[in-house]
């Protein structure tokens, strides 16, 4: 039931050096893949580039071909109201449900915002979130 809410984020290993992000962005450009949401997590001299894109398989194959270390990571996109307190509502509810967020990042389109969250067990978490009355954005809107 919750499978349609599982979003395949690309997690790409990258060194923290000048020009690295450009090289990654170029691959999206060359493959005609559009980025919906994007985030970089950095530690010491390296990082993980996280991207939600419209055609993840095409991007994944090209990155793999070019020798990048990358993985799919299952994440959820929780719809947020684009008003003050929108994030509070979502975060407070997740806290109340005992769902621990490993990491999160947000994006906004014209009408609403969304919080991308990585949680330990996304399928079970998706069910709880829906049952609690929040809206999850289905993967097809982003990358299927």
């Amino acid at each position: 039931m919750t499978e349609k809410y599982i979003i395949k984020q690309l997690s790409i290993f990258s060194e923290n050096k000048a020009g690295k992000l450009a090289a990654i962005a170029k691959i999206f450009l060359d493959t005609g893949v559009s980025i919906q949401a994007f985030n970089i997590a950095e530690a010491n001299n390296f990082g993980v580039v996280r991207a939600i894109v419209d055609k993840p398989e095409i991007a994944f194959n090209e990155f793999a071909k070019q020798n990048y270390a990358l993985q799919y990571t299952d994440v959820l996109a929780i719809k947020m109201k684009d008003v003050p307190g929108g994030l509070y509502e979502v975060a407070n509810l997740l806290g109340g449900l005992g769902i621990n967020i490993e990491y999160a990042y947000a994006f906004r389109t014209g009408a609403y915002g969304a919080l991308i969250v990585k949680v330990t067990n996304p399928r079970a978490a998706a069910q709880k979130i829906i049952d609690a009355g929040l809206e999850l954005l289905p993967a097809k809107d982003y990358n299927f």
Binding site: S11, F13, A43, N44, G47, N67, A69, Q71, E102
Partner: peptide
């Protein structure tokens, strides 16, 4: 060199 076969996608595993 990051080993492609053991990269989990998670920053904390790298740390």
């Amino acid at each position: 060199e990051m080993n492609k076969n053991v990269f989990s996608g998670e920053l904390k595993d790298l740390s």
